[in-house]
Design a protein around this nucleic acid. Structure first.
Lengths: 259, 259
DNA sequence: ATCACTTCATCCGTTCAACGGACAGGGAAG
DNA sequence: CTTCCCTGTCCGTTGAACGGATGAAGTGAT
């Protein structure tokens, strides 16, 4: 006999539970997978999943599995902080990459992470695992430090008070030292990170500012540790960053907000 | 006194109505906008919209409006036919663009349209309005013809029986003539389109094949009409297309399926 | 200052969409 | 054959969803 449904749960929350069951390591899931990963009873999961397919949010693969649909991808394309920014940045990122032939990354802030919006990579450059759509920690990546340093004092306190994971022996996890770095980054607009996230990789990052003076993104170049290339990359990086900021409406004289 | 809710509508359908109210020309909408565009009563629209914000599918902009959220964008990133294909294609598209300095487009099939997955553009090249996430007609664009020609006979019949919109005087709308072109494209793998979609623009497109022999995408180069560049572009385009197909697991000898 | 208008927010009684346990069919493994 | 897992369907119960009414807040014209 049918039992009452669990109270306090909305249809919407269940739908997003199902969708967020997909991740970079699981881009295709069967109905049983979805049931296991979400805990939703399978009759319910099935009904909702089929509705998602009908809406175009999911697609069925040949072998009775589900994947994120093209229609949902196109929706994501409309996110002002992602694809719109990405296309504005495209020529600058492109030129920077052509000039340096090193990894170039563009990232924005989401929660307590830096999310990679765009990424160009040379085949012969340092190996990196990060992907477009992937995320980097705020306290020990170039883009992360830029985004963190230009946020509100309360937010900085919150992040520094949290767990600062040590990725390599060189990762800076001392809050006092990090604060000094962030202050420096705030005044210069750029920051250098050496092997704090992965050994053998160094990066420089710079801020991207919009017409209202808000720091909306960070642009970085990643090179092999110890190579002379890092110093050579700084001027081009800064120039590209300023160019992109200008194309977003920023002009010299517009104060850069640090709220 | 409260009236009964309209029957035959699911929560899910309303949620997607709200989300799909966003389009390239309307990336930010107020609650009132959403009510107007979807026809959903505002009390309902408000409740659902706030749930979408909570889930991260939408974000609130400063001025009480809503926009597609970064979380939804990241979900879209997991679509195998979009971002995954895009990153596999990146080096090839990149090299093709470097060699030719002309518009390069990568598209896949969705319904009766070709959806643009990736696009690199030269500043001094022909003006095009298409954007990443945008769509092109199947019967008069390079990528469209490639994708259409490698689909099932039933699908081709259906498209040719539908309305074939004339965009320019040169647009081919005669089904018989189109069938001849599609047959030629099926055997050679490439197709040339001259000013059928917009005057002053010509394009060459080639198919992209995966390890199972299925045509999963189309790659094209767009140049100014009448320029000698079109002929020069063909060999590089074909080479890049083959390279991308190989990286997707295709090998010479694997038959190309036309279902 | 007053009015007209738009947008956002909350309340609350009604009702149907959503729920999920039970069962059945199909295919693969032992 | 039996067991196990997965997908798909049925159907009685019930609380989440619904939306009209009402009011607050903001905007602009006269």
């Amino acid at each position: 006999m049918p039992r009452a449904n669990e109270p306090g749960r909305t249809v919407s929350s269940r739908l997003w539970d199902l969708l967020f069951a997909f991740d970079p390591d699981h881009t295709e899931l069967s109905l049983a997978d979805l049931v296991r990963r979400t805990g939703i009873p399978h009759a319910t999961a099935r009904r909702l999943t089929l509705e998602l397919v009908e809406a175009g949010a999911l697609e069925r693969t040949g072998d009775n599995r589900f994947a994120i649909g093209l229609r949902l991808w196109r929706l994501g394309t409309l996110a002002p902080r992602a694809e719109t920014l990405r296309s504005a940045a495209q020529p600058f990122v492109e030129d920077l990459y052509t000039a340096l032939r090193q990894h170039v990354q563009l990232a924005v802030l989401q929660g307590d992470q830096a999310v990679i919006i765009e990424r160009l990579s040379a085949v012969n450059a340092v190996g990196l695992t990060s992907q477009v759509g992937g995320h980097l920690p705020l306290h020990c990546s170039g883009v992360g430090k830029v985004l963190l340093s230009h946020n509100s004092p309360e937010f900085i306190d919150e992040v520094l008070a949290g767990r600062l994971r040590r990725f390599t022996p060189k990762t800076i996890v001392d809050p006092a030292e990090l604060r000094r770095e962030l202050a420096s980054c705030r005044s210069t607009g750029t920051v250098v990170v050496k092997e704090e996230l992965s050994e053998g990789a160094e990066s420089v990052a710079t801020r991207i500012v919009d017409g209202t003076g808000r720091v909306v993104a960070a642009l970085s170049v990643v090179v092999a540790a110890g190579s002379i290339k890092l110093q050579a990359a700084v001027p081009s990086l800064v120039a590209s960053g300023l160019g992109l900021s200008r194309s977003l409406g920023w002009r010299p004289g517009i104060p850069i907000r640090t709220s």
